[in-house]
Nucleic acid binder design. Structure first.
Lengths: 178, 178
DNA sequence: GGTATACTCGATCAAAATAGTCGGGAAAGA
DNA sequence: TCTTTCCCGACTATTTTGATCGAGTATACC
């Protein structure tokens, strides 16, 4: 399992989306403003999320994104795998004998145990549970502005590199193989 | 919680160490060969692990590294935090109102929930449990060559970028803040 | 039809992290 | 003294991150 800020952004954005999709599709511009993530970056992330069918898109005025299936049926593992993509996995090729020398890919073996635990764990956390937690905390979700196309020119937020490049607990950039 | 290949390497190396430390200190050179991790990189990682007192070092012939405390008392979270270091955490500064606009650092709030879960989880996995799993799997641990300084010139392994730069489940490079 | 909204796609880019190299030390044992 | 092993700092190549820009396409509404 690979965990990066990329994954963090994706999860955060998905929670934001889940919290608000009752009022119809949510635009990336809105998520960008609320979560301080650059619009272009969100576009990239949601491109992947859409290809993995975690979200659906609606174009044109009043359009935006909605969840591809119920929040309860989307897990954190789903989201993270979607944005981190890469398909390979095992350095050796996945089969038994990677190094002729008797010990078939011990490196890979050692890691596999923890990795499996991680995957299982993240797969047990649903988007819905995170949403519920937010609601329980009393997060206020502005209620549907039924007027479409509201005030057009909200001040464009120009996010300056705000992300903690090195949080203590940061999902970092490499490999939980398999 | 931040998870990188760096963390993977560290965990893998620690399991290797734990599996073998009964026969006295384990050299980085040995771990390097078995786990296919570059010696210099291991030195960097073990420097951090030592500063965090997860391992102890012994210099000179017959020297090497041993665990700083019992494997049962070392958690995966300990290891990962050690090599990933960074101390900051919350993009905002940790306090309540990061953005004047009523919503105090929602971005951070949203993420915090999942992050806490991750930390709790990784803190619940002990090095010992991973070691036990390996032993149960029947991993063969060569028994103590009681002859110190054995065959000196085992072919030096020159690890070519062997790490899956993009494993499906890779611990990636960024931020689980806090 | 025209226009504004919104997603879609691709190329490009600076900064950071990852993973590794190199070389010179310093302690300890034989 | 020689060898082994840890120790440390500087330096480097590659990859990833996160962001920007520009050119599209689909849709709604007037």
């Amino acid at each position: 399992m690979r965990l990066t800020t990329k994954g963090r952004f994706a999860v955060t954005a998905m929670i934001d989306l889940a919290l608000r999709q009752n009022n119809g599709p949510v635009t990336l511009a809105a998520i960008s403003q609320r979560q301080q993530i650059s619009l272009s970056y969100l576009e990239q992330l949601f491109g992947k999320l859409r290809r993995h069918e975690l979200v659906e898109s609606t174009r044109g005025p009043g359009g935006g994104y909605s969840l591809g299936r119920k929040a309860a049926e989307i897990t954190v593992a789903d989201i993270i795998v979607s944005v981190d993509e890469p398909i390979d996995a095992t350095q050796c090729g996945g089969k038994e004998n990677c190094l002729g020398e008797g010990n078939r890919c011990m490196t890979h073996e050692l890691w596999a145990a923890l990795n499996a635990k991680m995957v299982d764990f993240l797969d047990s956390v649903s988007l819905q549970s995170l949403v519920d937690e937010q609601l329980a905390k009393g997060v206020v979700v502005e209620n549907a502005p039924m007027i479409k196309r509201a005030i057009s020119s909200a001040p464009v937020v120009k996010p300056i590199r705000v992300n903690a490049p090195n949080s203590v607990f940061a999902l970092g950039g490499a490999a939980f193989s398999k």
